[in-house]
Amino acid sequence: QEELVKAFKALLKEEKFSSQGEIVAALQEQGFDNINQSKVSRMLTKFGAVRTRNAKMEMVYCLPAELGV
């Protein structure tokens, strides 16, 4: 569980995922086979993730800066 949270936060820091499906796929690539869209959705809510525009003006998920991840 701890490893999943770390990987999840690291992915969001990249600010390149525009959908929950993309986050699920990226986590599965890292070996988290039991991850699915509903789990990702709950984690996004739990950590207060928001959708914002990145440098390329794409809408992407990211974590609020005050979490200091």
Rank of each mutant, 00 (worst) to 15 (best):
Q1H: 12
E2W: 13
L4W: 05
L4M: 07
L4G: 01
L4F: 06
V5I: 13
V5R: 08
K6F: 10
K6W: 10
A7N: 03
F8T: 03
F8A: 02
K9W: 11
A10W: 08
A10Q: 12
L11M: 09
L12H: 00
L12N: 00
E14L: 15
E15D: 04
K16Q: 07
K16R: 14
F17W: 08
F17S: 04
S18Q: 14
S18V: 10
S19Y: 09
Q20E: 15
Q20A: 14
Q20I: 15
G21I: 12
E22V: 04
E22W: 03
E22F: 04
A25R: 13
A26I: 06
L27G: 00
Q28P: 00
Q28N: 08
G31I: 01
F32Q: 01
N34Q: 10
N34G: 12
I35F: 03
N36S: 11
Q37D: 11
Q37A: 12
Q37E: 14
Q37C: 06
S38D: 14
S38Q: 13
K39W: 14
K39I: 14
K39Q: 14
K39C: 08
S41Q: 13
S41G: 09
R42W: 14
M43Q: 01
L44T: 01
T45F: 10
T45K: 15
T45M: 11
K46V: 11
G48I: 02
G48Y: 03
A49K: 02
A49L: 02
V50W: 05
V50C: 13
R51N: 03
T52R: 15
T52I: 14
N54K: 03
N54C: 03
N54D: 03
A55F: 05
A55Q: 09
K56Y: 09
K56G: 07
M57F: 10
M57W: 08
E58D: 07
M59C: 03
V60F: 04
V60N: 02
V60S: 02
Y61V: 02
C62V: 13
L63M: 07
L63Y: 04
P64L: 04
A65G: 12
E66L: 06
E66T: 06
E66D: 13
G68S: 10
G68T: 08
V69L: 09
